[in-house]
């Protein structure tokens, strides 16, 4: 029993220590974000990788989710004569929750893993040391451009995902469930409020920062060899996914608990 409690205690302490290290790292990112030099070329490259190249996976995820959501709401709503609320529920469901969360998780899968693996490989092959000897701070050159790109592009991706998700629901509702096109669109527009959209974009920004900071942190702190790179990649995606879901809960509370 004592050994079990000791093991649990050690695990809790390890998690708390990691939370502390990640917090310190995030603070350092913020400090470097506000001080020159700024590497514009690396920022543009990160914008392309995180934003533009994520569009296909974000679009496909959103369109299928929106379509499935319309089917589920129609089927479930029919049980108590509420099938007509499909446009409203799809819109609010996509914009407030599913859009930001699914885009966040897709970014964690696609971008966090890629950042962690790339930086961890750079560490293993001494490229990070080489950067330092070439008078270039790795935090400024590798981390800051990626975090800033995540902050800027993920809200845009979330906005696009929201629209595509609603479009997916619209297509299913109009083509398969017999909804009138104009009425569906009018109901969607009438029901959404500015706060819904704002909360979606703010969540996107928060998730973008979480996804990129986790990728950079675990990459920079990876162990040696192929196993170290693999472990860093796995840990970064796990941490980013859990933090995104936790942040989603907190932000939902902040925006809609009243």
């Amino acid at each position: 029993m004592g050994r079990l409690l000791g093991g649990i205690g050690a695990r809790v302490l390890a998690v708390l220590a990691m939370v502390g290290r990640v917090s310190i790292y995030a603070g350092q990112v913020l400090r470097h974000l506000l001080t020159p030099p700024f590497y514009g070329r690396e920022f543009l490259s990160a914008l392309m990788n995180i934003g533009w190249l994520s569009l296909p996976v974000v679009g496909l995820t959103a369109v299928f989710t929106g379509g499935a959501l319309a089917l589920q709401i129609y089927a479930g709503g029919s049980r108590f004569d509420a099938a007509a609320v499909v446009p409203q529920i799809v819109a609010i469901g996509m914009v407030r929750e599913l859009g930001p969360v699914l885009v966040g998780l897709m970014i964690a899968a696609r971008v966090t893993s890629s950042i962690a693996a790339e930086i961890a490989t750079m560490k293993v092959t001494e490229q990070i040391d080489a950067l330092v000897t070439l008078s270039t701070h790795p935090m400024k050159y590798l981390t800051v451009p990626r975090v800033l790109a995540g902050l800027v592009t993920v809200p845009v991706l979330v906005g696009i995902g929201d629209v595509i998700g609603i479009f997916g629901g619209y297509q299913v509702a109009v083509r398969s469930l017999g909804f009138n096109s104009a009425t569906y669109l009018q109901n969607t527009i009438d029901f959404l409020e500015p706060l819904d959209v704002i909360s979606s974009l703010v969540k996107g920004a928060a998730f973008g920062v979480i996804a990129t900071v986790m990728g950079c942190y675990f990459g920079m702190n990876s162990g040696r060899g192929a196993q170290g790179v693999g472990q860093a990649t796995k840990s970064s995606v796990e941490a980013a996914s859990v933090l995104i879901l936790a942040a989603n809960f907190v932000l939902t509370g902040v925006f809609f608990s009243a």
Binding site: M122, T125, E126, Q127, D129, A130, V132, T133, L134, S135
Partner: peptide, 18 residues
């Protein structure tokens, strides 16, 4: 730090090219 490091060049074991 920059001025100090500018005095050095280093060839790494695996070349460490970007």
């Amino acid at each position: 730090r920059d001025a100090f490091l500018a005095r050095f060049g280093m060839l790494f074991q695996g070349a460490a090219l970007f």
